[in-house]
Design a protein around this nucleic acid. Structure first.
Length: 488
RNA sequence: CGGGGAGUGGCGCAGCCCGGUAGCGCAUUCGCUUUGGGAGCGAAGGGUCGCAGGUUCAAAUCCUGUCUCCCCGACCA
């Protein structure tokens, strides 16, 4: 029997872990800080990947793949970049083991001349490669994405939200002009925003990071920020305008139309399996995971109910016909005809796995020519006619998708405050949490002070909060409010 | 890296103080009865108690060392 899930309001961390476990998404591996993504979790990631990949292709990008290992020297070429990542790199120093009475140990003879770094991100190896690909303005732009795993030696990990190794995509583009690169950066931010909202049903705030939160090596970092149900923010994706930093570091120049030799402009952008963590914490409840229909590996599950073999057959026939109808309409449906579990158990299990819609069919339904429909998001049940059930379900899935977004947006809005003073800020942060808009003087010192005193950080400087005011801490003039929250 | 907690069948735990070489619940397998919200009964299989030393006639239990994981902080997608 599945273990009960800890109440969400009681212990949010435990609740989160329970949901992940009960939904069979992932589990801790024996390797410190790493996770095993189970088939259910992988199917979800694959759907997310497909949605994103289509959007990348639609905006002119192609996929490629670069090596996992990066020569140590590459990492030292961009000063800011090194500083940001040096402290969390896995380093390969040797190439083989040797047997020593029953066990193995590292063969000291095999020490590498130059150590290899397991990529924490691929800017360096990619820009080293781009140097060879770019000579003329005709070679630009280069619009490439890579689906890969990366490793960051994190101190403390949490399933999906922060693991030592994680799956992600990283886009790396090269452009002839600053304007084009900046437009690309914002375009991809918009792709992320659209994906988060339309596929994940997760509302996000877009904006630009402060200098202290900026990606190591970027000129400007843009982000999407989501709010979790416990009132903490999650950085769900980033898009960086890299300026000419990497072009300078890796000497990537092109000859322009005017004959001049110029440095290339760059962007990079990425989202990771962390999105799954965001998805969980945006929609799920005490019964387990809730997945929006667009991303659900299984959108509809049909549960047959019967008392004897005769009923079993008629119900199976009835259920299979519905299954075929749903499949023919492109609905991802399955029939749960396992005989070793009772319906109640299956209901609970499907709910824990977040399947958006359940259809229960029993002898009564066969007789009355109807079905019992249960929505995962609202946990409400209704009886619907068997006739036209395919179209009905298809529409309902669409409704669930938009309802999930609306519910999440409403919750986010209710958890968003605007304050005018630092006292009010601290009060709201302690009593309510969530997103808080407040004026800030734009200095790193004030930002750090607020962080030290309240643990809240500036999640982003949003695009749409222009209004004159004065910093809630120092009273210095401010052109706009910025978005604060405690964050994951 | 600092503070706390924990390592005992697949999972969750008890036993440890006060040594006598393992037990409970769930899961698994088989059988019968069940099936509209996490089924019941009966039987069976499965663990040298994280690892390494030490004390002892005897160690899950006491001592020393060590590794790992989880939680809270600092750092980060």
């Amino acid at each position: 029997m599945a273990q009960k899930i800890t109440k969400r309001d009681q212990d949010y961390s435990q609740w989160y872990l329970d949901v992940v476990k009960e939904a069979k998404l992932a589990e801790h591996s024996p390797v410190r800080g790493c996770m095993v993504i189970r088939p259910t979790g992988m199917a979800l990631w694959e759907n997310m990947r497909q949605g994103l990949d289509t959007m990348f292709k639609d905006t002119g990008h192609e996929n490629a793949y670069f090596p996992l290992f990066i020569p140590k020297s590459f990492l030292s070429k961009e000063a800011q970049h090194v500083e940001g990542f040096a402290k969390e790199c896995a380093v390969i120093t040797h190439s083989r083991l040797k047997s020593v009475d029953g066990g193995v140990e590292v063969d000291p003879e095999s020490r590498l001349e130059e150590e290899l770094i397991v990529r924490p991100t691929s800017e360096t190896i990619i820009w080293d490669t781009y140097r060879g690909w770019i000579q003329s303005y005709r070679d630009l732009p280069i619009l490439i994405n890579q689906w890969a795993n990366v490793v960051r030696w994190e101190m403390r990990t949490r399933l999906f939200l922060r693991t030592m190794e994680f799956l992600w995509q990283e886009g790396h583009t090269a452009h002839a002009t600053q304007k084009e690169a900046e437009e690309e950066t914002l375009q991809m931010l918009e792709v992320y925003r659209t994906f988060a909202q339309d596929f994940m049903a997760m509302p996000v705030i877009t904006g630009v990071k402060t200098e202290s939160e900026r990606f190591a090596g970027a000129v400007e970092t843009y982000c999407i920020e989501a709010l979790m149900q416990d009132g903490k923010a999650l950085q769900a994706g980033t898009s960086h305008f890299l300026g000419q930093n990497f072009a300078k570091a890796f000497d990537v120049k092109f000859q322009d139309k005017d004959g001049e030799l110029k440095l290339v402009w760059a962007t990079s952008w990425g989202v990771s399996t962390r999105l799954i963590g965001g998805l969980i914490m945006t929609h799920s409840d005490d019964n387990g995971l809730v997945i929006p229909p667009k991303l659900a590996p299984t959108q509809v599950v049909i549960v047959p109910i019967y008392r004897n073999d005769e009923q079993r057959e008629s119900v199976a026939e009835y259920g299979n016909a519905i299954l075929s109808e749903l499949k023919s309409l492109g609905v991802r449906a399955k029939l749960d005809n396992r005989d070793n579990y009772k319906p109640g158990f299956k209901f609970a299990e499907h709910e824990a796995q977040g399947i958006p819609l359940r259809i229960a069919v029993g002898p009564r339904d066969v007789e009355n020519n109807n079905v019992e429909l249960a929505r995962r998001d609202t946990l409400s049940k209704s009886f619907e006619s068997r006739d036209g059930i395919g179209e009905f379900v298809k529409n309902l899935l669409g409704t669930i998708q938009t309802d999930l977004f609306e519910t999440a947006r409403k919750r986010r809005d209710e958890m968003t405050s605007e304050v005018e003073s630092y006292d009010e800020f601290k009060k709201v942060l302690n009593e309510k949490g969530g997103f808080i808009y407040a004026h800030w003087d734009g200095t790193a010192e004030t930002e750090e002070l607020i962080k030290q005193q309240t643990k809240a950080t500036i999640r982003c400087i949003p695009f749409d909060k222009t209004e004159e005011g004065s910093c809630m801490v120092t009273g210095k003039p401010s052109k706009q409010k910025v978005l604060f929250a405690k964050a994951y």
